[in-house]
């Protein structure tokens, strides 16, 4: 008996249906994600300039060697690393602290939880504009409070030494409530009998935290650690709204620098090569962190 052609069989029909369901998403992802990924690599090897798109010349790795000597890129990289290295542990700590606080037996628990979560409701743009007002050196809220405590006025965003730190404080404040919610879900998943067992063994509060709470939160903490790190590395909105990257480039981030070179100077070739370097950095962060997690688990 002759076999039916594959597409006429039950499996063949199912395969066709499957692909019909999947195809719209696959096509869109290919055009608007994978293709731009590819062109980013291609542009990074050219001197593509938006105003003369027909004169792309292949320049090899010239753009990449230019990055090595680019002081603005180096500064943006250092700023981004500084922001990331400070924001990640502080935000993780604040979020965990808040979660532990509102996980206690409390009156008005829902109110406190909602209050700490409330900054998440505002967009980064809204929050950045509000805090620019609060940081205002002459009439802003923070200097009013400092003055009432007898502390001299601070320049905050208008000083190269304080601008990035001011942005860090705001970013922690905006993001911590969100991670608090994730930690809370994790805390509620730790079985109560573990605490009871620890109590019977005579463990004090701190020992319970160290030996029951922390191990119970390990996976969630690592997950939050990865997401905050990558989000921090993409820093853009805060400096763009609050400081325009200044003063003296002290808050210019990598993504901001790439945006400026690509859109303000229209140097797509060079900006693409920096975008490629940026992508590689994000990949390295992801891989290193995944690797660390595997090590921990193994």
């Amino acid at each position: 008996m002759a076999r039916k052609p594959y597409l006429k069989t039950q499996e063949g029909k199912e395969a066709i249906t499957g692909y019909l369901f999947l195809l719209p998403a696959l096509i869109l992802l290919s055009i608007f994600l994978l293709y731009p990924m590819g062109t980013a690599f291609y542009y990074s090897l050219t001197d593509f300039y938006i105003l003369r798109p027909d004169e792309k010349n292949f320049v090899g790795l010239e753009n990449f060697s230019m990055i090595l000597g680019d002081a603005a890129f180096r500064q943006a990289f250092v700023n981004t690393m500084y922001f990331t290295v400070l924001v990640v542990p502080i935000q993780l700590g604040v979020a965990l602290g808040l979660a532990l606080l509102v996980n206690k037996k409390l009156k008005f628990k829902v109110f406190f939880r909602t209050a700490y979560f409330s900054p998440v409701v505002m967009s980064l743009v809204v929050v950045s504009i509000l805090w620019t007002f609060m940081y205002n050196p002459n009439e802003g809220l923070f200097n009013e409070i400092l003055a009432s405590l007898g502390i001299p006025e601070q320049p905050f965003l208008s000083s190269p030494d304080q601008a990035m730190n001011s942005i860090i404080v705001m970013s922690v404040w905006q993001g911590a409530g969100f991670q608090m919610m994730i930690f809370l879900a994790g805390l509620q998943n730790i079985p109560g009998h573990l605490y009871e067992a620890a109590e019977i063994d005579g463990a004090n509060l701190f020992q319970k935290f160290l030996h029951v709470t922390l191990p119970g939160l390990k996976n969630i903490s690592l997950f939050i650690f990865i997401t905050i790190t990558i989000a921090a590395f993409k820093l853009l909105v805060q400096p763009m709204i609050m400081t325009q990257g200044g003063p003296l480039g002290s808050t210019k981030s990598l993504v901001y620098h790439i945006y400026e070179v690509g859109f303000n100077y229209r140097d797509v070739g060079y900006a693409s090569s920096m975008a490629v370097v940026f992508t590689v950095m994000v990949l390295i962060i992801t891989i290193v962190q995944r690797f660390l997690i595997k090590e921990e688990e193994g």
Partner: peptide
């Protein structure tokens, strides 16, 4: 999921 949208916005804009 690993590709940061920030790294493709330029070529996406050109497209």
């Amino acid at each position: 999921l690993i590709i940061p949208p920030e790294s493709i916005f330029l070529p996406l804009y050109v497209l």
